[in-house]
């Protein structure tokens, strides 16, 4: 599904990724864990082809990739519902499906609100609803549960676990319990290299 071969990347002489290799087979779930600023986000951006590595190869065979970034990245001029519908057909026909995903994220009543009218945690849940709505075969999540309280976090994790349904998952997180709840293989990452 996704293969990174000896990826290296440096910014202004500082190595962020040093010959990193990663293989994510269909249905695999990998959690990258490491301290802040160790390069997890850069690795995910490289995997999504948003960042060109200095050397190495990225092979992505996903037909329907989806991502939740650290920022919600919602279109401010669209409602919550329209933001989710954007990755579907963006027509009225798929609005009920978009609404169903918002309901799953406990945001059913906020469908007609604009992102600016939502809290940070709610925006992040809309972003998750959008990612799951398109039924991805590769899901890349970069600390997606930031700003959620513990009880809600557990419920959302449960929804996510059910929704994954055979999709490959690449997750960056600080919290081991999230990785374990999603059934991920944990890969420790520090100073641009995998440590285990």
């Amino acid at each position: 599904m996704l293969e990174l071969k000896e990826i290296s990347l440096s910014f202004w002489g500082n190595a962020v990724l040093s010959k990193c290799s990663l293989h994510l087979a269909p249905g695999d779930r990998i959690a990258l864990m490491g301290p802040s600023g160790c390069g997890k986000t850069t690795l995910l951006r490289t995997a999504l082809s948003l960042q060109q590595p200095d050397s190495g190869t990225v092979i992505c065979r996903a037909r329907k990739p989806a991502a939740v970034f650290q920022e919600p990245r919602l279109l401010p001029w669209l409602t919550t519902l329209e933001n989710v519908n954007l990755v579907l057909s963006d027509t009225p026909e798929t609005l009920p499906a978009a609404q169903a995903w918002l309901d799953c994220m406990e945001l059913g009543d906020s469908a007609l609100l604009y992102p600016a009218e939502l809290s940070g945690g709610m925006q992040q849940r809309v972003s998750l609803a959008r990612a799951l709505a398109c039924k991805p075969d590769l899901l890349v999540l970069d600390e997606p549960f930031k700003g959620l309280d513990t009880a809600l976090n557990d419920r959302i994790l449960e929804v996510l676990k059910k929704a994954l349904d055979g999709a490959s998952l690449l997750l960056a997180t600080h919290r081991e319990e999230e990785a374990l709840a999603l059934g991920c293989r944990i890969v420790r990452y520090n100073a641009g290299q995998f440590v285990s």
Partner: peptide, 19 residues
Amino acid sequence: QLMEMARVYRLPRGRVFRR
């Protein structure tokens, strides 16, 4: 950031233009 999101989700060009 929105353009990157559109790229990741492989949104069609017309939709990116319109939305």
